[in-house]
């Protein structure tokens, strides 16, 4: 069965805000696909459209070859959906939540244990605890179990790792990888750029438009300029000084360094170095580095803004 998703020219407007501006996107059956973008980019709107919760203004989309408008009933049987907000019953225990969602889909927990087993063993010790009293990471695991209980073909996860600490986040991604091996198409929305590398392919999305769709590697490879990491004793002052530098294309704080690109294709680093020295930055470490998804996102989004 083809559990892919194809989206054509999909648009959605709320009042005067255009949340999605004619999106085209194809997600393959069985793919682990990332939708990477900040809050307000349109990720949730796209998910709600795909989950048959909203009607598009223009355009169409198909899940498992079924139209999201006409075939909404069939899609609802094939779909596992985890909204951004923690959407389980806080006053029900872990096991009661799971049982409830099993009955909603007219199935039983036991019949689907193979699907949820890996996740279930982690929350089983807390099965009689009220969902409202779980930690953020545990809540997400429970929500994932509930979304999987009916063996969906497509899984839509809207920011499952937002507000979840780094440890729980990495565990959560491990679970998604295991699920992928069961053949489920998984689409994950996330504002964390570093999570892009955990997906097979990603779409970078901002202000209702897709900036780029590709494998994380390809996106990084397509970075147009040479990227340098500059480290000085006072990164912030260095940042301010570089902004004044005539050849600066972009300069951003990046962890313990500054990420710098030059407007020129060919240039000598010595020039940058001596400029900064003249500004009083004596201990400089400048090295050529490989860009990350975040660098690409920033480059793409400033470029997109530039055309506006």
């Amino acid at each position: 069965m083809n559990a892919g998703i194809s989206i054509e020219n999909l648009s959605k407007t709320y009042g005067s805000v255009q949340a999605l501006k004619g999106i085209n996107l194809d997600i393959n059956s069985g793919e682990l696909f990332g939708l990477i973008g900040p809050d307000g980019a349109g990720k949730t709107t796209l998910f709600r459209l795909l989950a048959t919760l909203l009607l598009p203004d223009i355009g169409s989309a198909r899940l498992c070859d079924i139209d999201i408008v006409e075939g909404y009933k069939q899609i609802r049987n094939l779909l596992g959906y985890m909204p951004g907000k923690f959407s389980l019953y806080q006053d029900l225990s872990v096991i009661e939540n799971l049982e409830f969602f099993a009955t909603v889909f007219d199935t039983r927990i036991e019949d689907n244990m193979d699907m949820i087993h890996d996740i279930w063993v982690q929350i089983e010790p807390f099965k009689d605890r009220l969902a409202g009293n779980l930690s953020g990471g545990m809540k997400q695991k429970l929500a994932l179990c509930c979304a999987l209980i009916h063996q969906p073909k497509v899984l839509l996860l809207d920011e499952p790792t937002t507000g979840v600490d780094a440890v729980s986040r990495s565990e959560f991604w491990q679970m998604l990888k295991n699920l992928k091996s069961k053949g489920i198409t998984i689409v994950v929305a996330t504002p964390y750029m570093d999570e892009a590398n955990l997906c097979e392919r990603v779409a970078l999305i901002k202000d209702g438009e897709i900036l780029q769709v590709n494998t994380p590697q390809e996106i990084v490879d397509q970075f147009e300029r040479k990227l340098y990491a500059i480290k000085s004793d006072d990164n912030y002052q260095c940042l301010l000084d570089l902004r004044e530098f005539e050849f600066t294309n972009s300069v951003f704080l990046f962890g313990q360094t500054l990420h710098y690109t030059d407007v020129r294709k060919e240039f000598s680093l010595e020039e940058v170095n001596s400029y900064l020295k003249s500004k009083g930055h004596l201990h400089l470490e400048i090295e050529h580095v490989k860009p990350g998804i975040e660098d690409c996102f920033m480059a793409l989004s400033t470029k997109a803004d530039g055309y506006e």
Binding site: R48, A51, T52, L53, K73, R76, N77, L79, Y81, P83, G84, K85, F86, S87, L88, Y89, Q90, F101, V104, F105, D106, C146
Partner: peptide
């Protein structure tokens, strides 16, 4: 309000 309606709606109910 809690967003659980969203899940009930996407279910076959």
């Amino acid at each position: 309000e809690l967003g659980t309606m969203e899940i009930l709606l996407v279910s076959p109910l």
